[in-house]
Write a protein that binds this DNA or RNA. Structure first.
Lengths: 308, 308
DNA sequence: CACACTTACGATATTCGTAAGGATT
DNA sequence: AATCCTTACGAATATCGTAAGTGTG
């Protein structure tokens, strides 16, 4: 047994036309070929659907019964094919991304804007979250990919390098270091540092640096915006990734690069589930991401440019 | 664009098995042929539905979307084909017949019983009505056929002879004619006759007989059962078709044939709409009817046998 | 006799199965 | 090395279009 959309369409065309030759034309077939198509349908169903003499073409009682269901069925088929084609052409679809707050706020919005312009029908969603929740969402399949650092357990995940993010010193303009062109890490000895809490991936990147031990951790907070306020209040200084610098553009703050040889960097990745394909829409997003990744914090310049 | 039930079935089988070779077996195909079938579906939709490596076969995101709709679609298709096949095999269907009251009460029930035994799934309906309503229902398509006499206007209808129905004299046992082997029409001169009303086809058959003018129409009623009562009450006698004789089987009534040369007969027909095919179920009914038509009142014997 | 559906038939396109190829574990 | 999907290719099948046949008004 087999039933095809062509047969249904031929049937319904013939019902409308009540005329094989005309219906055949509408189906882009010669009349005998069309005749055979109708016959194949009748054979498949085991019933004659049309009573035809050379002068009249009419539905049989069984044909009338078939006609009650056929239009809905054909419509369902065509709707489904249409939907799939829309997915294929990325005229519709859904891409869900998780990203660290720094990326979510700084670089990603530009990517989202570019993607939306090209594929206006695709639904985008963005989950800004700390490192582990980001990775967890990838594992659960709640998002197609995450833009994050590496986590403790990367089992079942694959990470594709996205960019390196250099750390900068942020201090108050009236601080002694504020006017330096670049600072050595050892110059930070004994300085009062303001850091993010342990859940933060920024803090995790810093933790691996031995040089940090020499500094004094004055305060631990959870949000970068708070860090700004604390520095301005004269409570200390902070080391933050280039990507977050737009938080610190303030007349009373200075941003000072770390001297060559003293760089601290964190590696950011695009994290996906192992062995799991992306949807068409997500693939296009991924490609855009990779194409644009050079615009992402080459020496933090992008981040600075971002807030003109 | 084309989409077939085979493709859908193959898709769903592969979703279940997650294994081309096994799925192919279940579809009675070799594995490469099955592979090609899946590819033809993917081509039709314009999207890859499965991510396949040699070790794993998994749905793509688009495949998962397709899978949400595919089962219902396939089910609808198979249900429709199944329904049509049931109609074809007469395991289901509907036959609607209109018949004159005499046929509806006497002969048809036996036919209905035989048909029901053979096609228990087919719904039967019987409309007993006078001649014109019978024909009207055929015209309207409310019934597949009617068992009736010819009407005044038979336009758009085709009548197939069913049987001849001889008229009999019914009188009270104590009447002078009651003991005759057969009566001449002229013997009825001046007798008080009880007839059916003008809507009745029996009356219409009689009306065409000149001999009737010589008789005295004592009473006109609408139901044969009433005729019985009137005759028993000694109010007259009646001429009725053989097919209705079962109404008159009564110890105090006599049924007397009309003498050769004096016969009155009415012709009964199977009436259908012109140029309109019958459903499979109705065709089977029609065939049964024609096969059994010889059991219908050959000289009225059936009607008499009917009430043993 | 003209129109319209079916049948006949050769050509083309699809689909099938067998066998070989290539990738993954 | 074993498994399993894909590709290759000749054969069987289906489908198409042209042309002839048939029936109806």
């Amino acid at each position: 047994m087999n039933l095809s959309s062509r047969q249904l369409k031929a049937f319904l065309t013939l019902v409308e036309e009540r005329h094989f030759t005309r219906a055949a034309r509408r189906c882009h077939l010669t009349q005998p070929a069309f005749s055979a198509l109708i016959q194949s349908l009748e054979d498949a169903l085991g019933v004659r659907l049309f009573d035809r003499s050379t002068r009249r073409v009419e539905l049989t009682p069984e044909g009338r019964h078939f006609r009650r269901s056929a239009p809905r069925l054909l419509n369902d088929m065509e709707a489904l094919v249409g939907e799939m084609r829309e997915l294929a052409s990325k005229r519709r679809g859904r891409v869900a991304v998780a990203a660290l707050p720094s990326l979510a706020a700084g670089w990603l919005p530009r990517i989202y804007a570019a993607y939306s312009a090209q594929y206006p029908g695709v639904e985008l969603s963005l989950h800004d979250a700390l490192l582990e929740p980001c990775l967890q969402q990838v594992r659960e399949g709640a998002v197609d990919m995450a833009l994050a650092a590496q986590g403790r357990d990367m089992g079942g995940l694959s990470a594709e390098p996205l960019c390196e993010d250099l750390f900068y010193l942020v201090c108050r303009r009236d601080h002694a270091l504020a006017t330096e062109r670049a600072v050595e890490l050892k110059a930070l000895r004994g300085q009062r540092m303001i850091h993010l809490g342990k859940g933060s991936s920024i803090r995790q990147s810093l933790s691996s640096h031995a040089a940090l031990d020499a500094m004094q951790t004055a305060l631990e907070v959870d949000h970068l915006a708070t860090v700004t306020g604390l520095i301005l209040a004269g409570l200390g200084m902070s080391l933050v990734p280039g990507m977050t610098l737009f938080h610190f553009r303030h007349p009373d703050l200075s941003i000072v690069p770390l001297a060559p040889g003293s760089e601290i960097r964190r590696q950011l990745y695009l994290v996906r589930r192992d062995n799991r394909g992306l949807s068409q829409a997500a693939t296009a997003f991924h490609e855009l991401l990779m194409r644009e990744r050079d615009t992402l914090a080459p020496e933090g310049k992008f981040a600075i440019r971002e807030t003109p």
